[in-house]
Simulated assay, not measured.
Amino acid sequence: MAIDHLRDLSNPAAANRVVIKVGSALLVGPDGQPRQEWLAGLISEIADMRAAGQQVVVVSSGAIALGAARMGLAKGGRGSLADAQAAASVGQIALAGLWSRLLEHHGLGAAQMLVTLGDLEDRRRYLNASSTLARLLAAGIVPVVNENDSVATEEIRFGDNDRLAARVAQAASADAVLLLSDVDGLYDRNPSDPAAVLLDRVDGVTDEIRAMADSGSASGLGSGGMISKLQAAEIAERAGIALAIVNGTRDKPVRTALGSGRGTLFVPQRCDGGRKAWLGGRIDLRGTLVVDSGCGDALARGSSLLAAGITAVQGEFARGDVVSVAGAGGRILAQGLSEYSADECRAIMGIRENGQAEKLGYAPRPAVIHRDHMVLL
């Protein structure tokens, strides 16, 4: 059964497995203390979903905010990397205990999963995370996932839990992601504008849709804004996963949003298989191959990327790294696993296969990125 409307997220036949993302500003008050009453209401909704036959994975922010309050750190613990990591270390204990205690009131067990960008970018570790999630859900446990900010640095972190939620949804083979936000959904312009119109459904994230996004996070506690939510929607929609943005500030936010139908639903655009869904959701890209228009057209028809169509190579990468493929105008067309290093790509770009051996010193491979290892965006 397809997910076509917000209310479908409450139907176990359409959304059997749902990822719910909770941001810092919803879970933690301005005083650095957890919003116990609000959270208790949300957890009662999760219990109702479980009783109805749905499985739930939670992606929860809040560790840094909770830890900063306990340590008395300025700027919510985000004054420096050391402060953020220390606050996360303290806050993770409080956060895990909070979820565990409140879920237990409804007879539900909780499990904590801390992940870094590398855990979901590396294929083997991604499969390990997927297996763990599957086993927990089969056992009736509610996994509570967060980025491991105690060890992650700017270079190796998601940076927001919106994209993390979409990647977790892929790993968990979820049907839907529900992003609880501080706004009702995606508006056609900044929601502070009285003329702004809420979009109730988006069939594919386009340049026009991206232009509507406001990059700011209104609360100051979180790290994401509407742009990160659109990036999450793109990851989800390619993997056959519906994603909804709804207002989480109200009591019983899931029931309120789904009952009223107020929010924005991003409808899946295709359903890539497991490996291609993982590849299409990769965030840590090491470089870019710029191609001519003829090559771009060939890629759209399902061809592999050949060196003859490459006009420029950006960044430094090794064989097997994930790189993006951009058209002459800069638009990203695809991403995939490069069969060559950046230096090798520079040596053979624009050259047909019969002339590549002299440049490389060995027989060339059939393609720079084979179509089986590439995802069109």
Rank of each mutant, 00 (worst) to 15 (best):
P253G: 09
V254S: 09
V254N: 08
V254T: 12
V254I: 15
V254H: 07
V254P: 06
V254K: 10
R255W: 09
R255Q: 15
R255S: 15
R255V: 15
T256R: 08
T256L: 03
T256H: 08
T256C: 05
T256W: 03
A257C: 05
A257G: 04
A257P: 03
A257R: 04
A257L: 04
A257M: 05
L258K: 06
L258W: 06
L258M: 14
L258A: 06
G259I: 11
G259F: 07
G259R: 11
G259C: 10
G259H: 08
G259A: 10
G259N: 12
S260M: 07
S260I: 08
S260W: 02
S260N: 13
S260L: 09
S260T: 15
S260R: 14
G261S: 10
G261M: 07
R262K: 14
R262V: 15
R262F: 02
R262Q: 14
G263V: 07
G263S: 07
G263H: 07
T264N: 12
T264R: 11
T264H: 09
T264V: 12
T264G: 13
T264Q: 11
L265G: 06
L265K: 05
L265Q: 05
L265D: 05
F266E: 08
F266L: 09
F266S: 11
F266Q: 11
F266T: 10
V267H: 08
V267G: 07
V267W: 01
V267T: 15
P268W: 09
P268A: 13
P268C: 13
P268G: 13
P268T: 13
P268Q: 13
Q269V: 15
Q269P: 02
Q269F: 00
Q269A: 14
Q269S: 14
Q269K: 14
Q269W: 00
Q269Y: 00
R270Y: 02
R270K: 13
R270C: 06
R270D: 03
R270W: 02
R270N: 04
C271R: 15
C271F: 00
C271N: 11
C271E: 13
D272S: 10
D272I: 01
D272K: 03
D272N: 13
D272T: 01
D272V: 03
D272C: 07
D272M: 08
G273L: 03
G273E: 14
G273D: 15
G273R: 09
G273T: 07
G273K: 05
G273Y: 00
G274S: 11
G274C: 00
R275C: 00
R275Y: 10
R275E: 12
R275A: 06
R275V: 06
K276H: 11
K276P: 01
K276Y: 00
K276T: 13
K276I: 09
K276D: 12
A277I: 03
A277G: 13
A277Y: 00
A277S: 15
A277F: 00
W278L: 06
W278D: 07
W278T: 07
L279G: 10
L279W: 05
L279P: 06
L279I: 12
G280K: 02
G280W: 00
G280Y: 01
G280D: 05
G280S: 11
G280E: 03
G281P: 02
G281Y: 01
G281T: 04
G281F: 01
G281L: 04
G281A: 03
G281M: 03
R282N: 04
R282T: 06
R282P: 01
R282M: 09
R282W: 00
I283Q: 14
I283R: 14
